[in-house]
């Protein structure tokens, strides 16, 4: 009898959790729709977007470039180690480039973006909520979804692909520096094999598509978590960690899904 009761209680709790999940999903979708549908006046909108592009994109530039450089260098190093065992060190260029354009570029850049820019977005909006700045704005007749949230959303969607591209490009250069300049792989073979193997439509464009999707999802999660957080310092802290965790997991999960769809033809 006791087992039945605890079972029922667990099922009810699960049910409540599921309903809450859908409720949150609904709120998040509503936020997204409000953000995407209305735009403030064009001149003002541009200025707001500029400011957000700066805080989301430009400020992430350094970490993207440095990480890209290191990852490219490591790829060059490890790739050379393994490929030279099969006498295939000529293939280093294509290995580095393909890994980056298809996977590492969009995914690692997105993870870095989720950690740096998205956590900042959540904290910023959460703090505005906790200090009643959002409510004050509402009471002044200014919709915070349009003025505060929307510019950040579009800035994220624009910045993410740019950051991923910069990451891949810098990483390829890093791989070049380690592979050709330091380890002595043939310069012509490095670029020549790479150019033969990397298809612009299949690899580079697909990578861009991935990073657009990642930018969309990560920014959405960050903005929603900030907007819907509990207006206390603890609430903000929890929302910020949640953003980073959910966004990172979403990136990895979506990456698998997108890779399966894009590259299943072989």
């Amino acid at each position: 009898m006791m087992i039945m009761l605890t079972l029922v209680r667990k099922v009810r709790r699960l049910g409540r959790w599921v309903i809450q999940f859908f409720e949150t999903a609904g709120q998040a979708s509503f936020l997204l729709f409000s953000v995407m549908s209305g735009q403030p006046k064009v001149g003002r909108a541009f200025q707001l977007l500029m400011k957000q592009l700066f805080s989301v994109g430009v400020l992430s530039f350094i970490i993207i470039v440095v990480s890209g450089l290191f990852i490219g260098m490591v790829l060059g190093l490890q790739g050379y180690n393994i490929l030279s065992r099969f006498g295939a060190s000529q293939a280093l260029g294509e290995m580095v480039a393909l890994s980056l354009c298809r996977e590492l570029g969009p995914v690692v850049a997105a993870l870095l973006y989720a950690g740096r820019a998205c956590s900042a977005l959540t904290a910023e909006i959460g703090l505005m909520k906790a200090t009643e700045q959002l409510a004050a704005m509402e009471m002044m007749g200014v919709d915070p979804l349009k003025r505060i949230v929307a510019p950040r959303f579009w800035a994220g969607m624009i910045s993410m692909p740019l950051l991923a591209l910069i990451f891949s490009a810098v990483a390829v250069l890093g791989g070049y520096w380690v592979g050709v300049v330091i380890l002595g792989v043939d310069d012509g073979a490095f670029w020549g094999n790479m150019q033969n193997a990397v298809d612009f439509h299949d690899d580079v464009l697909n990578g861009i598509v991935k990073s657009v999707v990642f930018g969309f999802v990560c920014t959405w999660i960050a903005l929603f978590q900030g907007y819907a957080c509990a207006p206390t310092s603890e609430g903000i802290a929890r929302a910020t960690t949640r953003t980073v965790v959910y966004a990172s997991l979403a990136v990895l999960g979506l990456d698998f899904f997108l890779t399966a769809v894009m590259f299943s033809g072989g």
Partner: peptide, 8 residues
């Protein structure tokens, strides 16, 4: 116009 407790 609304004046919030914390000024906001």
């Amino acid at each position: 116009g609304m004046l919030f407790q914390s000024g906001a």
